[in-house]
């Protein structure tokens, strides 16, 4: 496990918290990840862009072991990802994940959704878990919904609960898999605002998204995926204003 970094350390002097080396994955005969290598520093915000079907979601899901890789190696927070379920579970304790389709537990209240994992995995007493949960709900702006069920909330509210649920485990890394793609346009902003405030808090983030302005605003680095490969990595300015690769130019011209 890595030691906590000092917030005034410059990004390039921090340690790598996610190390992906030559990842390869096949779905049957379809080669979905081709020699993907990416290192992420502690506290860095990496946004992953790319056309749909380019393997960016698959990539982010390999980081916490939701997708198996066939070749390559992943190290998260100093723990090498193996087939051993104990390793996978200790990595998952340190990584929170937010899904495109929220995936809240529909049979539990919002508060129970958030406190379940801290109580059973972190072994916190119930009172502490509920206190932390209420603080998080306050932070994402919906403390008054704590005793409702997910089905009674709007999409944007549900996604904010999902973020709070992931944060309740106090993870070092947050993975966002297209967090706004299933939302109505007027709700996208409220979710992005929550993610933006997180980006300044020192937590390491990997975000798959289609929101270009958001990417430009929060990212320390942007990674562009196409056909299962990393095409280009760079700061937002480098990538948006001065793209080097042909396919980056093509992608940006289609989007912007």
């Amino acid at each position: 496990m890595l030691e906590k970094f000092k917030s005034d350390t410059p990004l390039d002097q921090r340690q790598d918290i996610v190390i992906c080396n030559q990842l390869n994955k096949w779905f049957g005969s379809l080669h979905v990840l081709k020699d993907v290598s990416l290192n992420v520093k502690q506290g860095e915000v990496v946004v992953i862009l790319g056309p749909s079907g380019s393997g960016k979601s698959t990539f982010i899901r390999t980081v916490n072991g939701l997708e198996e890789i066939q070749k390559g190696s992943i190290t998260v927070d100093g723990i090498p990802l193996s087939n051993d379920i104990a390793d996978i579970e200790s990595i998952r304790k340190e990584t929170g994940m937010v899904f495109q389709s929220f995936n809240l537990f529909p049979h539990m209240t919002i508060l129970k959704n958030i406190t379940l994992a801290p109580i059973w995995v972190r072994k916190w007493p119930k009172a502490k878990a509920e206190k932390v949960a209420m603080e998080l709900l306050e932070r994402v702006g919906i403390p008054e919904q704590a005793h409702k069920y997910p089905g009674q909330l709007s999409g944007g509210q549900q996604q904010r609960v999902a973020i709070a649920r992931a944060l309740a485990m106090q993870p070092k890394i947050m993975l966002f898999d297209e967090p706004t793609s299933a939302l109505d346009p007027e709700m996208i902003k409220e979710v992005l605002d929550v993610i933006k405030t997180l980006a300044g808090s020192g937590i390491t983030m990997l975000v798959v998204t289609h929101e270009m302005n958001f990417a430009r605003e929060v990212a320390d680095r942007i990674v562009l995926f196409d056909f299962g490969e990393i095409i280009e990595i760079g700061t937002p300015n480098e990538l948006f204003d001065n793209p080097k690769h042909e396919r980056t130019k093509l992608f940006l011209s289609q989007i912007l």
């Binding site: 939701l66 579970e89 998952r92 994940m97 899904f99 995936n103 485990m169």
Partner: peptide, 16 residues
């Protein structure tokens, strides 16, 4: 499948 994945992503073991 999302329910399984959400539970797994939180680090819950199979029993929980």
């Amino acid at each position: 499948r999302g329910q399984f994945e959400a539970a797994e992503a939180l680090g819950l073991n199979t029993t929980i």
